[in-house]
Simulated assay, not measured.
Amino acid sequence: MLEVIGDLAKRAKRGTPESMVAALAAKTSSLGSLPNVLHTELIDQEILGNPVEMRGVPIVGGAQTVTTSTGEKGVFFDESPEEKALRRWQEGAFDEDEHAHASVYRKNAKSIDLQAFIRATKAVRPKGEMLASSLSELLGVVDLFLDDPGSQYRTLSTALDMFDQPESSKRHVKKHWAAYGRPPIRYFLPYTYHCMRVFKLFGLGVGLGLISQRPTNVIDLQYLYYLPFCMVFTSADNLHHDLAPLFLKDEQWYVKSDDMQAALRELVAYYADHRAELKATGMMGFGRYPPLSQETVIHQIYDDLMPRWRKDALVPKKKISAEESDRIMKELRPIMEAIGKRASKGD
């Protein structure tokens, strides 16, 4: 979303920058799509003491707490701030702040000094010696540096400086870190640590010539900050090809864009040949699992992450009975009423 809105300050080959951004935004369907909260906001929240879950699912903004007439509490998600912005962009509506952000974004992207990474790397590298000959080796060096038991205060200070934390936040988190017995930063601020680890590898990789000095690499790098919130990461970017697998856990998948697109084309062809079944039962019924007659990388992912799916795919989806529907609505009604009351008050 940051990269798309940045195009507002870009000269369009056809039409206007606004029409170009609207077209890009329109490619993201609101059905089954959830924008993640911005990584800088997550870092700020973690430093303030709010844990960031990193279990392969997106973190969505805009949650509202509601209390029913019977005293039950729940959390309601309407449109998140990111979803609202995306919908506006699809309609070609942009506010002044977004135009200003686009100008700053593109200006910063052009002013990134990659030579600074090279100078910094020379400063820490013994003369005539290589820190590492590959990115995987270099990540080991980064981990030794960041996880050094005697230098955790330095690691914490580096993280706070790297992500532009105000002095008040720095004092706050250092005080709490000391109160908790000065634990390793890897466990004390796990998400902030992940982002710092990604950035450190990139900076040293550029400095050693293991990563190219293409200016847009700094922008592309930010996608890797969201790896903890996905099960599968797919990309056509060479930087992602090199770096993403190094930061994924064993249960996560990295799929090259060409392989994913080939699999999706097979699915499209299959559903085109089965229009009648699709129309009769709907996509959520007929297409809830990949076709058993095919074998693609998508099937491999399902086999690994949802090992029961082939058996479940053989069982027809049950329709909800009228009695079950009534029971569900009876449970939901107090919550819906509480949401309605909150909306009427303008909360």
Rank of each mutant, 00 (worst) to 15 (best):
L264D: 04
P228E: 02
G32H: 04
T158C: 06
A116P: 03
L204Q: 07
A116D: 13
K311A: 15
M284P: 03
A100N: 12
Y180P: 00
H241S: 09
Y153C: 04
K341P: 01
L42N: 08
K345Q: 11
A116F: 10
S103P: 00
P17Y: 11
T65P: 01
L292N: 13
G140F: 03
T68S: 12
E323A: 15
R342P: 03
L292C: 07
V297N: 04
T216C: 02
T65A: 13
A26P: 05
I320Q: 13
S133F: 11
T216M: 12
T281Y: 11
D273P: 03
L305N: 00
F229S: 04
A63F: 08
R333N: 06
L292W: 05
A338F: 11
L114F: 15
V218D: 06
L246Y: 09
M306D: 02
L210W: 08
P291G: 11
Y254N: 05
Y254D: 07
L114H: 15
S29E: 06
Y153K: 14
K107F: 00
M130G: 02
L31T: 12
H172E: 11
G282Q: 11
V4Q: 08
K345M: 07
S293T: 15
R214L: 12
T121D: 08
E46H: 04
D304E: 02
M283R: 14
Y226M: 09
G205D: 11
H176W: 00
D148E: 13
D237F: 01
L156T: 07
T234L: 05
L314H: 08
V66T: 11
A262E: 15
R11G: 02
Q294G: 06
S133R: 14
S212V: 05
F94D: 10
A23I: 00
L204W: 14
T67C: 10
L8D: 09
V124D: 05
C195E: 00
S103H: 10
L139R: 01
S103V: 15
S151C: 12
M306Q: 01
W89Q: 09
A100W: 04
